[in-house]
Amino acid sequence: MPQQLIQFKESASQTAGPYVHIGCTPNFAEISGVYEEDLGTRMLIGDAKGERLTIKGRILDGTGTPLKDALVEIWQADSKGLYNSPSEMRGSSDPHFTGFGRCATDMASGEFSFETVKPGRVPFPDGRLMAPHVTFWIVARGINIGLHTRMYFSDEAGANGEDPVLARIEHRHRVDTLIGKREGDVVTFDIHLQGDNETVFFDI
């Protein structure tokens, strides 16, 4: 037998379960005194550059009921389009912006909410610029493997129209499932797990 190409298989995912908050947002779960603050609570550290926005929304199941036990994580570039990551080779991102947010959906309303800045444009591998977007990752009881999606901005129609990722969506009416609706400083992004309005999820 020749040598093996890949030595190991990625560990299989298992659902985050109903008690994901104990591990990921213990203060939210009323387990206080272990961590000072839940990870990903603050994306802005002091004077972050760029346009301040609140991103909020809900995650809806196949009956349209909001999930009240989900955990949402977002990851985005700073206002200049740079990521706060060692793999970012194009420059140093804004030291006052983490780029990472984590939020448990509210146990009564199912709403998540992030205080952030509007991301700048980031190049696609071929050099074309993608439209401003925020990467979402969703886990919850009943979700066997975390769901990846993206939110774009309704006030960026021009950039969205030339975005190479949105261009990949065959059924054009589904593009709208990835557009956060901006009103003033608030962007609303509801995520539909199933149904006619099912959000486009990615295998990345």
Binding site: D61, G62, G142, L147, R168, L193, E198, V200, F202
Partner: peptide, 12 residues
Amino acid sequence: VLRSPEKALLSL
């Protein structure tokens, strides 16, 4: 059952 996407994931 109610929390699983029904459409194919978009490969990217």
